[in-house]
């Protein structure tokens, strides 16, 4: 049940002085939908490319399905067993939609014909249209069809919803939860936090190549809170000394803390200062992400 299908240890990629991915430790359990969040340039795509043997790690190791990502032969096996839809959705432009699907099928023994039919129908892709003349959204849809019909046990998607309108985006998310119900593991990067929040159960956040957070969505939401305190007089506090306080903002008599776990003890401790009001605010994933980034930017020493 708790078997990890993707793991990395100290995975690092340096380009000269620039560290794109910095000592990344990941563990992704089988059968989960895992959302990979980070700003542009956080290192998401580089990480994915290292997992798939397309970029050579500078140091560190990684395994997919127990296969070593750094070993040429095992990496070939990884690519057989992992479906990947790249960020740039590169496809043969001179083919039609129908041709590329027909061309791709025989490479994969497990090709899922009913999925192909369903996706073509849902996305309403014209099979006779040349790929060259597809819109950006349609290209994305076609790349997804070619990737998802492979029936691979692990599916890695780099920005899969790019260019999709809300209707087609919802269709994609439905397909993904259906695949997860079949026991597939889905690892997808996105900067659309809302879609990640909608379907992912495990969240990995990356910032400047470093792991910012890595835990189940339920836990993130249960752990991270804003605690807002009001005082009659301007209090003299040093909240960062309290365990669990990630950042705080004080404006005169009002203090807002961003906390990770330990909220009860924090509140107990602050009661010594006689606040006139204490409010604990739940956060959605977007705010957790933004507050975490803010906290690390403020206090990164």
């Amino acid at each position: 049940m708790n078997e990890f299908v993707i793991t990395t240890k100290g995975l690092t990629k340096r380009y000269g002085d620039f560290c794109a991915v910095d000592k990344l430790d990941l563990n992704i359990p089988r059968g989960t939908i895992c959302g990979f969040l980070g700003q542009n340039g956080a290192g998401k795509s580089t990480t994915i490319k290292m997992l798939l043997g397309m970029v050579k790690p500078s140091s560190g190791t990684g395994e997919i399905l127990g296969l070593d990502i750094g070993d040429e032969n095992q990496s070939v096996e990884i690519r057989k067993r992992v479906a990947y839809v790249a960020e740039d959705k590169r496809l043969y432009d001179y083919m039609t939609v129908g041709q590329i699907i027909k061309f791709t099928r025989p490479f994969f023994a497990e090709w899922n014909y009913s999925m192909e039919e369903r996706l073509l129908d849902e996305f309403r892709l014209p099979t006779s249209r040349k790929i060259k003349s597809l819109s950006k959204g349609m290209r994305t849809q076609l790349a997804l069809i070619v990737g998802l019909c492979r029936n691979a046990e692990i599916i890695i998607l780099d920005e899969p919803s790019e260019g999709l309108d809300p209707v087609n985006n919802e269709k994609l998310l439905k397909v993904l939860v259906g695949l997860a119900a079949d026991g597939k593991t889905i690892f997808f990067s996105s900067h659309h936090v809302f879609e990640v929040e909608q379907i992912a159960e495990h969240i990995i956040m990356l910032h400047n190549g470093k792991l910012l957070d890595n835990r189940p969505l339920d836990q993130l939401k249960a752990n991270y809170k804003l605690i807002k305190l009001l005082f009659d007089d301007v209090p003299n506090l040093n909240p960062l000394e309290l365990k669990g306080v990630k950042s705080y903002v004080q404006v005169d008599r009002s203090v807002t803390l961003f906390t990770d776990n330990n909220e009860e003890q924090i509140i107990d401790r602050l009661k010594i200062n006689n606040p006139s009001s204490i409010e604990v605010i739940n956060l959605n994933l977007r705010d957790i992400f933004l507050e975490s980034l803010k906290a690390i930017e403020n206090y990164a020493a």
Binding site: G178, A180, D182, E201
Partner: peptide, 15 residues
């Protein structure tokens, strides 16, 4: 079924 529920509500099947 778990699958129908997940697809209809667009939520994670494990939920």
């Amino acid at each position: 079924s778990v699958r129908t529920m997940a697809e209809q509500l667009v939520i994670n099947p494990n939920t």
